[in-house]
Simulated assay, not measured.
Amino acid sequence: MINKGFIMLHRELIDWEWYTDVNVCKLFVHCLLRVNYSKKKWQGIVVNKGEFITSYDKLAVETGLTVSKVRTALSKLEGTNYLKVETTTAYTKISFPKLNDFVVEVRQSQNDTPNDIPNSNEVTNISQSNDNHLATTNTNNNLIKNRKKIFRDKVFSHSTFDNIILESFFDYWSELNTDKTKMRFETERFFEIEKRLKKWAANERPKMISTKVKPELLTNR
């Protein structure tokens, strides 16, 4: 994210109906900080002042919330017309119909030029159905614990698999590299959780130990 310029908030924000809802307020302020300060284009799409391009997964990583909490917060905000969400298979565009109710000014910094790349331009080739989206994020700027939490939520959302399978699958693919900057699954070029889980479960085999049959999970997947 390009952290340039600033926004000026009204003190009346304290009296806002969602101010005491931690998740909603946090996401709302984060979105205010992400909006463009001038009309620009992103991959042929017009992005006006007070709008930006993102995805649910990206917002989750940036705020530390789960994807489900991001969806719930956005639903509350959209339901009360504080922001508008336009979702496609490639991206999500967020805009603020009531931007002036909270923001006194959205201004570029003196070092910015009118042709500066907007904040949203780093969101390239977004696919919200792609389980490997987290691997494309900037690992130097996002807390590993947030990405790990999101990955765990994604894995355990596949409730048709046994919890033992899910736990072992998560433990293996969330193992960190020596620099503690990436999980094992983030080093894979292609990674679809459901397909990997099916293969993981299929590779489970019984092993006789002390006359008891115990599952042995293969780690070479």
Rank of each mutant, 00 (worst) to 15 (best):
V47I: 15
R71N: 10
L83P: 00
F96C: 04
E86V: 14
D57H: 08
N142M: 07
V35I: 15
S68A: 13
A60G: 03
W200N: 01
E78F: 02
D116L: 02
E78K: 14
T211Q: 11
S174M: 04
N111I: 06
E122T: 05
N119E: 10
K154H: 05
L166A: 00
N142Q: 13
F169E: 00
K198R: 14
K198P: 02
S68N: 12
T72A: 11
A201M: 04
S210N: 07
S120E: 06
K40M: 14
Q108M: 11
V85F: 03
R205H: 14
D116P: 07
I126T: 07
E51A: 00
V123A: 14
S109D: 12
N115Y: 10
T54P: 04
E122W: 09
G64Y: 02
R196K: 14
A60V: 01
E192M: 10
N138M: 06
F6W: 10
K149S: 12
T181N: 08
L33Q: 15
T66K: 13
A201G: 03
V24D: 03
T88L: 05
T20R: 15
K199Q: 11
D116I: 05
A60Y: 00
M208P: 01
L74R: 03
K41W: 12
G64Q: 05
D101G: 13
S95I: 01
N203W: 06
E167V: 01
T178K: 13
Q110S: 10
T160F: 05
L74N: 00
T54W: 02
Y37Q: 09
F190Y: 15
R205P: 06
L59I: 04
S120N: 02
I53M: 10
I53W: 00
Q110W: 08
R147N: 09
C25G: 07
K4F: 10
K76C: 08
P114F: 04
S210C: 03
M8T: 10
K93S: 06
A90S: 12
N81F: 07
S129T: 11
V103S: 07
L59P: 03
L59Q: 08
N163P: 00
V67L: 11
A73P: 02
T87A: 14
V155W: 02
T124E: 06
K40W: 06
